[in-house]
Design a protein around this nucleic acid. Structure first.
Length: 427
DNA sequence: AATTATGACAACCGCCATCTC
DNA sequence: AGAGATGGCGGTTGTCATAAT
């Protein structure tokens, strides 16, 4: 029990995915959805198990992934969330638009843990190491995953399961106003970092727990809520001071139209119709100048690489003292990666195709999304005809087609980008 | 230049919860 | 009700690139 039948099958490929495999999987899912994952590899012509396909899609191919280095805000948020949720990476990831649990987990294990230790903080308990070593705090917040649910049932949760508070969380998913209980949970006091200085409110442990409990109470069979509203836009929490629904970034709730569930013959997966990532992105009330024409409406999916905050890398984030949220263009689009695709030929440098393929792939896909957003209905036909790759085509064709596609997308939305750029003066 | 250490990331493994028959 | 199938999650391992020696 517990072991997937597909895992017993022979001749299944393992290890890194090739561009061809990615292409096949993407092509299949964009056309038909994944339906039952176990049937995906067969239908897509892949020698992989369904589980592997699912993982590849979720962690890598999904078009709403942000990728790139984590900003300082994201790192801080991860630390804060981890102090409350422990190693529940999927829960943490749900609050970080465009990030996967795997990505966050890797960041935590390879980077953040180390940082915290350097700061004298125990990454498990989020308490000062001296305190932990003295045995004052021997119960880590994050027990191993299997026990974590029980762990959440400990004092932390019980303290916060006060009916009114929970109900409040359910009925009103808006982040608590500054009037919320001012008590900071211990981790805040022990850590040298703080939530971004510009935050209008400082989220408390209660707040996160309420949020967590709320999402769980409203969900039925999985950790993912069945309704997008269950994921309050944490950005409002973080950047809410200037958030204004009329600020010009009129955001369409729900999933990107280009990936409308109507397009899917299979059952639409919750990853898209309820995906907190998508919804979070779409509801991101990024602080914007108030003089943006109100009628200028951008779906966030059109500018998926607009990021907030610094782009501090984990290796060089010690200077992450960003004191205000900045809306800044991600260089990957506006500087080099996308806009230089046309110049890619000049940079062969002999770098193995596979190494850079993912970057091209993702950027092109992200850029292609707006195109699809324009005409969601015939999306999959267009994908088929426009990308013109087949499962047997070499990856170079795939690249070329992707480049072509992104170029078209750029043409179509160059004006939009220019308007955004003009508005913010970022380019 | 060769070897080793380290970091970042991708992917796999095993388990559990839920669903379906 | 129970067994198998499946989805999902977290821990762990593998791979590759780069830095250090």
């Amino acid at each position: 029990m517990g072991r997937h039948s597909c895992c017993f099958k022979q001749k299944l490929r393992k290890g890194l995915w090739s561009p061809e495999e990615d292409g096949k999987l993407l092509n299949h899912i964009t056309k038909y959805g994944h339906g039952c994952w176990s049937s995906v590899p067969k239908q897509a012509g892949l020698q992989r198990c369904g589980k592997s396909c699912r993982l590849r899609w979720i962690n890598y191919l999904r078009p709403d992934l942000k990728r790139g280095t984590f900003s300082q805000q994201e790192e801080n948020l991860i630390i804060e969330l981890h102090s409350v949720l422990g190693n529940r990476w999927s829960q943490i990831a749900a609050q970080l638009p465009g990030r996967t649990d795997n990505e966050i987990k890797n960041l935590w294990n390879s980077c953040i843990k180390k940082k915290l230790r350097q700061r004298g903080i125990d990454p498990n308990t989020h308490k000062p190491l001296s305190e932990v070593e003295n045995g004052d705090e021997k119960i880590p917040l994050n027990i191993k995953g299997k026990n974590s649910n029980q762990t959440m049932g400990n004092s932390n949760e019980s303290n916060l399961l006060e009916a009114e508070t929970v109900k409040q969380g359910i009925t009103s998913l808006e982040p608590k106003p500054p009037s919320m209980p001012p008590h900071q949970f211990p981790v805040d006091n022990s850590l040298s970092y703080k939530f971004n200085h510009s935050l209008s409110i400082t989220p408390t442990k209660d707040f996160f727990l309420n949020r967590y409990i709320t999402s769980h109470e409203n969900s039925t069979s999985s950790c993912k809520p069945s309704d997008s509203t269950e994921y309050f836009p944490l950005h409002q929490l973080n950047y809410g001071s200037n958030s204004n629904p009329n600020s010009g970034f009129s955001v369409t709730p729900g999933p990107p139209a280009w990936f409308n569930q109507n397009c899917r013959p299979f059952e639409m997966n919750s990853e898209f119709n309820t995906n907190p990532i998508s919804n979070s992105i779409l509801t991101t009330p990024i602080s914007l100048p108030s003089d943006i024409p109100p009628k200028t409406s951008y779906s966030m999916s059109r500018v998926p690489y607009w990021e907030v905050g610094s782009s501090g890398n984990c290796g060089s984030s010690s200077t992450g003292s960003t004191s205000s949220i900045e809306l800044q263009s991600n260089g990957s689009i506006f500087d080099n990666n996308v806009f230089s695709w046309g110049l890619m030929d000049k940079d062969p440098v002999g770098e193995p195709e596979e190494l850079r393929w993912s970057e091209y792939f993702h950027n092109s896909y992200v850029m292609a999304a707006p195109t699809q957003n324009q005409t969601p209905q015939p999306l999959y036909n267009e994908i088929k005809s426009e990308t013109q790759y087949t499962t047997d085509e070499p990856s170079t064709s795939w690249h070329q087609n992707q480049l072509q596609q992104s170029s078209q997308a750029l043409d179509m939305y160059g004006k939009d980008f220019q308007r955004i750029a003009a508005t913010f003066g970022q380019i």
